[in-house]
C-alpha cells in the first residue's frame, strides 16, 4: 500500500475562553499520520488528547495552524462539507459508546448509512455483515442496554465501520471496560488495522498504547 500522508497537522493550537481568561490547551501540534498506520496518542488526563481528537475528527476547529485531510485544507470547508467528510472518511468510537438507547443494535449501526443516503435494503445487509464479522449478529434486534459494555463498544465499532471509512478515531475506547473486554476491543482495532484501516487510538494507559505501531506522547498540549 502506498503510504501517503492522510492527516497532516502543522502548528495547531486550540484556545478555550473562560470568561476573560484564555486557556491554551493545544500549544502548537505538528504531526503526520500516514495511510494505514496504527497510532496511539497517549497522555495524562487533561493533556489535550480529546481536544486533539475532536480536531482530527472534524468535530472542532483549531484556533490557529493548519490541518490537511489528504489534500484538503479543512479550514476552508463549510459545516455541511465537514458533515459529509465525517460521514464518509471517519469512524468514531467514544469512551461512553454513545449508542441511541431506544434504537435497536441494527438501527444504531446503520445510522451513518442513513446519512450517506444509502437505500434501506443495502444498508441493513451491510450492517448485518459487519455485525456478523464482529460476532454480534445474534444481538441485532436488541437494545443497547441489553448488552454488556464490551459488546456495546463493539457495536460502536461496527457503526464506525458502516461507511467503510479510511480512519477510525477511538477516544479511550477501553475507558469504561474491564481489562478483558478492553483487550477484545483493542484486538478488534488491530484486526481492522491489518485490513488496511488507519487507526488513531487515544488512551492514557501505557499498556494499551504500546500495542499500536507508533505512540505519540502528549504532555500539557505539546508533543514530545
Amino acid at each position: 500500500m502506498k503510504k501517503t500522508n492522510l492527516i497532516s497537522l502543522a502548528n495547531v493550537t486550540k484556545d478555550y475562553n473562560l470568561g476573560d481568561l484564555t486557556v491554551r490547551v493545544l500549544k502548537g501540534i505538528t504531526l503526520k499520520i500516514k495511510n494505514g498506520e496504527f497510532v496511539a496518542i497517549q497522555g495524562r488526563s487533561g493533556s489535550g488528547k480529546s481536544t486533539l481528537m475532536n480536531i482530527i475528527g472534524l468535530l472542532d476547529t483549531p484556533t490557529a495552524g493548519s490541518y490537511y485531510l489528504e489534500e484538503t485544507d479543512v479550514s476552508s470547508l463549510k459545516e455541511d462539507e465537514l458533515s459529509y467528510l465525517r460521514n464518509k472518511k471517519i469512524g468514531f468510537v467514544f469512551q461512553s459508546f454513545n449508542l441511541l438507547p431506544r434504537a435497536t443494535i441494527l438501527e444504531n449501526v446503520v445510522l451513518p448509512g442513513i446519512y450517506a443516503g444509502e437505500n434501506p435494503k443495502e444498508r441493513d445487509e451491510k450492517a448485518g455483515n459487519i455485525l456478523e464479522k464482529i460476532g454480534l449478529l445474534k444481538h441485532i434486534s436488541k437494545r443497547p442496554n441489553q448488552l454488556s459494555g464490551g459488546e456495546q463498544q463493539r457495536v460502536a465499532i461496527a457503526r464506525a465501520l458502516m461507511n467503510n471509512p479510511d480512519i477510525i478515531l477511538a477516544d479511550e475506547p477501553t475507558g469504561n471496560l474491564d481489562t478483558k473486554s478492553g483487550q477484545e476491543v483493542i484486538n478488534l482495532l488491530k484486526t481492522l488495522h491489518k485490513q488496511g484501516k488507519t487507526i488513531v487510538l487515544i488512551t492514557h494507559e501505557k499498556d494499551i498504547a504500546k500495542q499500536a505501531d507508533r505512540i505519540i506522547k502528549l504532555t500539557d498540549g505539546r508533543i514530545n
Binding site: E79, K88, P112, N163
Partner: peptide, 12 residues
C-alpha cells in the same frame, strides 16, 4: 451531537 458526528447535515 452524535448524529452530526456520524454525518447528519443541518437540514437532516
Amino acid at each position: 451531537g452524535l448524529r452530526k458526528a456520524l454525518g447528519a447535515k443541518r437540514s437532516d
